[in-house]
Design a protein around this nucleic acid. Structure first.
Lengths: 203, 203
DNA sequence: TAGGTGAGTGAATCAATATTCATTGTTGGC
DNA sequence: GCCAACAATGAATATTGATTCACTCACCTA
């Protein structure tokens, strides 16, 4: 047992994180007293402070973990994928799947990550930047290879793609609608690549 | 003077609203004590309650007013515009212009509107639904007229458009980047209509 | 089994802060 | 000048809630 009892590996640590995500998804960070999180996790208020530095720290950790998992998952498959199109589709799919993986976490990402509480905005920003960078690189490569048009900014396109997917996710999360992540990802990327104008070449 | 002194028309009413938007944009709703808003507006704490029912009410009013202005502005020009493409471009442009109109308000819309505080999520939802509905209708009309492909869902496309633009706005607002709203709107709609695949017919 | 260790507890503390309301100041009519 | 009527004030109130810390107790070791 190299893991300290109160360390990140322990079962109680995870229980507290899960409870925090649930409670905050339901009520928002500022309407979630530590006592409510503790109750949900089945521990005493003070116990939270054995595992985390502060209430902030709990949320920060939850968000960091989720982003890291996302980047890791994308990173693993990424190189094996054929072309830019397949890579963009895969990113979109993983992004859209987050709903099914953990709905509470998806809600939390939609509601709290953009929230202006300084401490969140600042530390989560670099995760988003990383996402956008990956997409931009794929697009630039596609442009260099002549697969994509070169008269549109890779930055604008990357933000469009992120925004489009995130908005679909957001609306599904809040309305409770469900969808097939893979099919929806394919549809979004299809629109991004081919547009919606009638008569555009298919695929 | 049919307007009551403490009514919506008065100068102090507007000063309080503006101050609230500024302070909340800087610190977030839950980190903005009423006293800070009052100080920024140059009034006493209690004065706010002569003009508004509660702290909630101030924010609600600010957001409502902004959405109403948006819908009105879009509504005015809308019928005079030629085709679906022009209409979509105009909506995108007005959306993107909100940054220049009032940066604090743009920040607030990005940070607080999605926030899970129940009272915000609930009342602002219908404004977004209205936005999406308008776009969906334009798209359906375009599909019926044979201008747009019929094999993609109008809902998905509408959310993609909203998300793409909102994300561009968001990223610009937070990084301080500036852009030409009209040109950017045209670029986004161009991608939406024609895609980014090389060789697609132009415009 | 006595002693030690440290995880776990939850009541007490202490700082915020939304809202109220008794009081003050101002204005316009007489 | 005097007097409503009413906007404005801001100190007082009452509540909430993050964090602390003195204490308990289960478990281990000698």
């Amino acid at each position: 047992m190299t893991v300290p009892a109160t360390g990140p590996g322990s079962e109680k640590y995870q229980r507290i994180l899960d409870a925090a995500v649930e409670v905050i998804a339901e009520n928002g960070y500022f309407n979630s007293p530590v006592s409510a999180i503790a109750a949900r996790a089945g521990v005493a208020d003070g116990t939270i402070y054995l595992y985390f530095k502060s209430k902030d720290d709990v949320l920060r950790t939850a968000i960091d973990t989720t982003f890291d998992r996302f980047h890791r998952q994308v990173g693993e498959q990424f190189e094996t994928l054929q072309g830019p199109r397949e890579q963009l589709e895969y990113i979109a799919q993983v992004h859209l799947e987050s709903h099914a993986v953990n709905r509470s976490m998806a809600i939390l990402m939609q509601t709290e990550v953009r929230q202006s509480a300084k401490f969140i905005a600042e530390f989560s920003h670099h995760h988003l930047v990383k996402y956008i960078s990956v997409v931009r690189e794929v697009i630039r490569r596609g442009q260099k290879e002549g697969i994509f048009r070169q008269d549109v900014s890779d930055g604008v396109v990357a933000h469009c793609m992120f925004g489009a997917i995130d908005e679909l996710l957001s609306s599904a999360v809040f309305t409770g609608r469900v969808y097939d992540a893979k099919a929806t990802a394919a549809q979004v990327i299809d629109v991004l690549l081919n547009g919606i104008k009638a008569g555009s070449a298919k695929s």
